[in-house]
Structure formats: C-alpha cells, structure tokens
Design a protein around this nucleic acid. Sequence first.
DNA 1: GTTTTTGTTGATTGACGAGTCAATAAACTT
DNA 2: AAGTTTATTGACTCGTCAATCAACAAAAAC
Lengths: 197, 197
Amino acid sequence: MPKLGMEPIRKAALVKATIAEIGAAGSLDVTVSQIARRAGMSTALAHHYFGNKEQMFLAAMRHVLSIYGAEVRGALATADGPRERLRAIIRVSFAAGSFRSEVVGAWLNFYVLAQTVPEAKRLLRIYQRRLRSNLLAELRPLVGGDASDVADGLGALIDGVYIREALSDGAPDGAAAARLVLAYLSCRIDGTGANRG
Amino acid sequence: MPKLGMEPIRKAALVKATIAEIGAAGSLDVTVSQIARRAGMSTALAHHYFGNKEQMFLAAMRHVLSIYGAEVRGALATADGPRERLRAIIRVSFAAGSFRSEVVGAWLNFYVLAQTVPEAKRLLRIYQRRLRSNLLAELRPLVGGDASDVADGLGALIDGVYIREALSDGAPDGAAAARLVLAYLSCRIDGTGANRG
DNA sequence: GTTTTTGTTGATTGACGAGTCAATAAACTT
DNA sequence: AAGTTTATTGACTCGTCAATCAACAAAAAC
C-alpha cells in the first residue's frame, strides 16, 4: 500500500492526535500508543517519523502556537486604530480557533512541559514576547509610559483566564472570557470598567 | 529505634518532600522513591502512611492551600476597610510564604492534577471560591454591581501571574507581582491605573 | 512475660511503556 | 529486472516504578 509522500500527512495526523490526547487526558501522561492509535497507525511508525515522544509534544506545541499566531495576524489585518487592534488581539485569543477545551487542556500542559524541556520553554517565551510586543505597539500611543505595565497585565490575565478555563466543566465561553479581559483594557486606557462595543 | 508517635512527623516530612520534588522536577513525574528519599525514609514507609502516591499529592495540595488560607486570614485580621483588606489579600498572595519557586512550580502542577483527580479539582475549586468570596465581600461596597466581574478578573490575574512566574528564571519577585495586580485593582475601584501606597 | 500495636525496610512482583529491529511490500530509478 | 528508497508493522528488549509482603524491632498493654 505504500503511497509515497505520506510523511507530511502522517505527521499532521500525529500532531492533531497528540493535542487531542493531551487535551482529553488533561496531562502529558499519554502513551505513544494512544497517540498513534488515534492517528490510525502503529507506534513504530510514530517513532519512525518523530524519533521520540518529546518531538511529538514539541511539534504539537509549535502547531498550536502557529495557529494562534496566524489568527492574530489575520485579526490585525482588518483592525484600524490602536483601540480596535487591541480589542482584536484579545477577541481572537478567545475565539473558537484556539479557545477549545482540548487546546486549552493542551496549553496548560505545555506550560508544564516548559518546566523540563528547554525547547518548550523557548517556544512559550516566543509566544509571550510576540504577544507583548503586539500589545505594546498599540498601547504606547494610548497610555504612554504605562504601556509596559498594561501589556504585562493583559498577558498575565489572558493566561489566567486560560488556565481557569481548564478547570471548568462544559464548553469554554469565549465571549465571557473576552469580555473579562476587555474590561481590564477599557479600565486601563479609558479609565472606566465599562465595556462597550 | 521505633519511637512512638512518628506518624504525624513522617507525614509532614513526606508532604514537604512532595512539594519540593514536584517543584524541583517541575512536573508530577516524580517517583515515590524520590519523595521518600528526600524525606529520609524508605518507599515502603511512604506507602505505609499514605497508601498510594495520589494521596501524597493530595496531602501536599491541602498543605499548600491551608498555608495560603492561614496567611489570608492573618492578613485580613489586621486590615481595616475594604480598600485595605483587598490590598492585604493581594499582597499576601505574593508574599514569601506561598510565592516561592518550589511552591509556584507545585501550584502549576496541581492545576494539572485537577484535570484527572476529582478530589484535586474539588480542592482547587474550594480555593477559588474562597478567594472569590473574600474579594467579593470587600468589592461590593466599592463597586457595587461590578463586584462580581472585578473579583473574577482579580482571581484570573492572580493565577496568571503565578503560572507566568513558573516560567521565569530566578527567584520570584513578589513585590513586582503584587504591584501588577494592585494596579488592576486601583483602576477598577478608583478609576486610575496608578498604584499609590 | 507474652501478646499486641506501631515503626521500619529490603526484596519482590507485576504491569506498563519507550524505543529498536528485522521483515515485508509497494513504489520509483536506472 | 535489479536495486534503492519510502512506508509500515509485529514482536521484542530493557528499564522503571507503584504497590505488596514477609520479616524484624521496640514500645505498650495485659
């Protein structure tokens, strides 16, 4: 049956299965068997393409991060003015592309992975830095010298909402999550807690 | 050598060792051997007192949570007025008793544990509810109907700062962390981002 | 002074899982 | 047609680790 050019297909299936398994298990304690089974192949093949489990985890992380990055770019492309661009970044952070229970569950575990795997830490740092610089660029014209503080606050708040979501039952409520973060933003840039628009 | 009344001493040593091991490893992937060795006893004895590893983890969680609870109560006992009481809760959340790298590392992993162990989820929920109700009681006289939103925001922000800390190198900077959260509070209750006092 | 309770451990069991390997087969190359 | 590369897997190795057990020791109870 060996059709050629399977590598990217298999890898993609494994990445997807890895995220799903970690999300479903709520832990990094998933076996290569489970991942391979979900992806519809043998464990030997999974090892063949990724070498070891850690590489599968890292590929899954890169995938989640790149999806998120693409969504942010997409959202920014159609948003005008600092206020709207900030709102767009926040809204997209809780949009259906990333704010799904399996992804949230995986996200939490990527933080744990980053404690022991330097490459995972590096990836998470890149995400944090990029988010921070995106926020800073729009915040500076609005709050000047406080931009740095506000950006840190927003970053921490977004992460906090994410992990709290991992603990709740039921499907994530992205709208509510976004509202919460938008309220923080409004307060810092308009001096009000109200969240209109 | 069998001195009597060892049980509480051994258990306390194991709880402490469990937190230290999880914090040091940055993961729940610690063996009973490691924990027992650090606590100065055999693995068999650890099993004798706790039955299984999960119970050790849960005991460690209860310990961390109870320390935090005690510190909050202590801080509230000497704080007057809603503003000061809120500030006290935030400050104590980042005080040296709980905001230490091993504890922060363990904390992150307790979130992961809560994904699979119902009792862990229950404990974390109790912490969240208690924090929320503490905040709510002081926020209501200050912001009325917005109290609920602000409490949710503060809770998420505190958690966010915690997990971000788990990712940074070097000793935690509790003062900076508290400042960040206090700025959010000021903004929501005073309508300003500035953080005085 | 024997029996019971409490403390303690080395050795063992039993399960599980990551990673390897040899083997098979289909497609491409020459 | 022979040889090479790519795809694929079942079976196996080797290590690890949670949990158990039998045994020993000292204090307490009777």
